[in-house]
């Protein structure tokens, strides 16, 4: 009971702060948009086939790069004025800080994805409405995996001298399974293949999510403690 109150308190204060400044969301969204546009320049004009082959990759580069940007910022905010110490002083398991920041990042990344997806459909001339349920499932599982290790690494990077610079270097190699699974399954779904065909990918995403959520939750305390 007290746990959910505190969990929500952390998420809520991040949301209020974000609604006021909009700095996380706007920078993530504009960055994702830029990635779509820049990559479109890189691959077109090309054949329709080339466009279909490259589209899922471009989409996930946009999501993960924008995600890394937001993840880094979310912990940098806690380091300002040493707020992270204020959080650590609070009673209770410190894993709750991880969980709250993870859920917050999930919300921010999800919001960016929801807004970017229609633009992607327009720019790359793909129909996403008929495949929306499967696409949502892929987005959900992949974003959980990416945000779980991402939140932990963001906490690490924020504690180093280089701040956010280290985050992508830590995050992207470890997130390789998520990125490959996301790109491949998105590609299959865009080709109109049935969900059963991507079941192995979804299983992999699910295993990644479960394994790393647990590990990150447990090890978070070691990352923030001095």
């Amino acid at each position: 009971m007290g746990y959910t109150v505190r969990l929500w308190a952390i998420i809520y204060k991040d949301l209020v702060s974000e609604f006021r400044t909009k700095e996380l969301f706007s920078s993530m969204f504009v960055f994702a948009l830029l990635v779509l546009i820049i990559f479109n320049f890189a691959f077109s004009p090309g054949t329709r086939e080339l466009q279909l082959v490259t589209a899922p990759g471009i989409l996930w580069v946009a999501f993960t790069f924008a995600g890394a940007l937001g993840l880094g910022r979310s912990f940098a905010l806690e380091r300002e004025k040493d707020c992270i110490h204020g959080l650590m002083l609070c009673p209770g398991d410190r894993g709750i800080i991880f969980l709250a920041k993870f859920l917050g990042n999930l919300l921010f990344m999800g919001a960016v994805e929801v807004i970017t997806l229609p633009l992607f459909a327009i720019f790359f001339n793909v129909r996403i409405l008929p495949i929306l349920p499967s696409l949502t499932l892929i987005l959900f599982l992949s974003t959980i995996g990416f945000a779980s290790v991402g939140t932990l690494f963001a906490a690490m990077a924020a504690a180093t001298k280089t701040r956010e610079v280290l985050l992508p270097i830590l995050l992207f190699p470890v997130a390789v399974p998520v990125i490959i699974a996301a790109v491949k399954s998105t590609g299959r779904v865009l080709e109109g293949r049935p969900l059963s065909e991507i079941a192995p990918w979804l299983n992999m995403l699910l295993s990644f999510d479960v394994i790393f959520l647990v590990i990150c939750y447990i090890t978070f305390e070691y990352v923030v403690e001095e």
Binding site: L152, M156, L170, V174, F212, I215, T219, Y222, V223, E225
Partner: peptide
Amino acid sequence: RMAAVLGII
């Protein structure tokens, strides 16, 4: 400590 966490992950 942070490296140990990465070593596990």
